Amino acid sequence: MILLIANTKGGVGKTSLATSIVAALSKRDKAVVGVDLDSVNMAASRSWSKNRSEVDGKFYFLAGDVSEQIKKIGADYDEVVIDAGGFDNTEYRQAISVADVILIPLLVGSSANIEGLQKVAETIEKIRADNLPKVYGVVTKAPHFGTSPELERAINEIISDPLTEPCPTTIGDRVWYTRAFDEGIGILDLQPLKRSEAKYIKSAQDEFLTLFNFIYGENNV
Rank of each mutant, 00 (worst) to 15 (best):
M1N: 04
L3T: 00
L3Y: 08
L4T: 04
A6D: 02
T8P: 15
K9A: 10
K9Y: 08
G10M: 10
G10T: 10
G11L: 02
V12A: 11
T15D: 06
L17K: 03
L17E: 03
T19E: 01
S20G: 11
V22W: 05
A23S: 13
A24Q: 06
L25T: 01
S26N: 03
S26P: 04
K27Y: 07
K27C: 09
R28V: 04
D29F: 02
V32Y: 02
G34C: 07
D36G: 12
V40I: 12
R46C: 05
R46A: 07
R46P: 03
S47D: 13
S49I: 02
S49N: 08
K50Y: 14
S53H: 06
S53V: 07
D56M: 05
F59S: 10
F59R: 01
F61W: 04
A63Q: 06
D65V: 06
K71V: 02
K72L: 09
K72M: 07
E79P: 02
E79H: 01
E79D: 09
V80T: 13
I82P: 01
D88N: 13
R93Y: 12
A95F: 07
I96G: 10
V101L: 15
L103K: 11
P105K: 00
L106P: 13
L106F: 11
V108S: 04
G109W: 14
S110E: 15
S111Y: 12
S111W: 10
L117Y: 02
L117Q: 12
I124N: 00
E125S: 14
E125Y: 07
A129E: 14
D130G: 11
L132F: 11
L132N: 10
V139N: 04
K141Q: 15
G146H: 08
S148N: 13
E150Q: 12
R153K: 12
I158R: 03
I159L: 05
S160M: 05
P162A: 00
L163A: 05
E165S: 04
P166M: 06
C167F: 08
T169D: 02
T169K: 08
Y177R: 11
Y177M: 09
T178F: 12
T178V: 15
T178G: 15
A180E: 02
I185D: 08
I185L: 09
G186D: 14
L188C: 08
D189G: 06
E197D: 10
A198K: 13
K199F: 09
K202T: 07
A204H: 01
Q205P: 00
Q205W: 05
E207L: 05
L209E: 05
T210R: 10
T210I: 11
T210K: 10
T210Q: 07
F212T: 01
F214C: 00
I215H: 00
Y216R: 03
G217P: 00
E218F: 05
N219Y: 03
V221H: 06
V221T: 06
